[in-house]
């Protein structure tokens, strides 16, 4: 019973995260949401009795992919100085989806 509640909450969170990765106006926020998505995927693998896949996902999916996206983000964001883009005090901008 409690186990299926865990499954349900985890799956809803995964879908919610995937949706917000794609619709959030700020690219940096999308990347951070994607990193947390990877972390929660590892929990899903554990629940599906696949600890080997969970091991690979924990190493590659959350660690390496997150670092890759974060270091590519700097190059792919507009503006002459990256920190003005990433470090805005107010909420996200509305430059397309």
């Amino acid at each position: 019973m409690i186990v299926s509640a865990f499954d349900l909450v985890l799956c809803l969170t995964l879908v919610w995260l995937a949706w917000h990765v794609l619709v959030s106006p700020d690219l940096f926020r999308a990347v951070v949401l994607f990193i947390s998505f990877g972390l929660l995927m590892a929990l899903a693998w554990v629940r599906l009795l696949a600890p080997d896949v969970a091991l690979a996902e924990a190493a590659i999916g959350s660690g390496l992919t997150g670092a890759l996206f974060l270091s590519a983000l700097r190059r792919l964001t507009p503006g002459r100085r990256g920190e003005r883009r990433v470090d805005r005090k107010e909420g996200g901008d509305d430059e397309g989806l």
Binding site: S4, D7, L8, C11, L14, V15, A18, W19, V21, L22, L27, A30, V31, F34, A44, R47, L48, F69, A72, L73, L76, G96, L97
Partner: peptide
Amino acid sequence: HVYGLTGLLLFIVGLAGLILCAQLLRKILA
């Protein structure tokens, strides 16, 4: 049931994002 449906939904959401989003980085995320 739960995880299979979630996988399906994730695929659909990712496909929609791949088609609809214009930014290149977001396509890669999708």
